[in-house]
Computed example of a mutant assay.
Amino acid sequence: MQEYIQDAMTFMREYGRPCFFLLGTFTCNPKRPEITSLLLPGQNAIHRHDITARVFKQKFKYLISFITKLHVFGPTRCWIYSVEWQKPGLPHAHILICFINKIHPEDIDSLISAEIPDPSTDQLLFDIVTTNMIRGPCGALNRSSPYMVDGKCTNRFPKDFTNDTVTHVDGYPIYRRRSTDNGGQSFIKTISNADIDIDNRWVVQYSLLLSKTFNAHISVEFCSSVKSIKYICKYVNENY
Rank of each mutant, 00 (worst) to 15 (best):
K61C: 12
L63K: 04
K69E: 15
T76S: 15
T76C: 15
T76L: 04
T76P: 07
Y81H: 15
S82H: 09
E84R: 13
K87Y: 10
K87G: 01
A93W: 03
I95R: 07
L96H: 12
F99A: 06
I100L: 10
I100V: 13
H104G: 04
E106K: 14
E106D: 13
D107F: 05
I108D: 04
L111C: 02
A114K: 04
E115M: 13
S120L: 13
D122Q: 09
V129L: 05
V129F: 07
T130A: 05
R135N: 10
L141D: 13
R143H: 09
R143N: 05
S144E: 12
M148T: 12
V149P: 00
D150Q: 07
K152F: 08
C153K: 11
T154R: 15
T154N: 09
T154H: 02
T154G: 01
N155I: 04
F157W: 01
K159G: 01
F161L: 10
T162L: 09
T162N: 09
T165S: 07
V169L: 00
V169H: 09
Y172M: 03
Y172N: 12
I174V: 15
I174C: 05
R178H: 00
S179M: 00
N182W: 01
N182A: 14
G183S: 07
Q185W: 03
I188A: 06
K189Q: 14
N193Y: 12
I196W: 07
N200D: 02
W202H: 10
V203K: 10
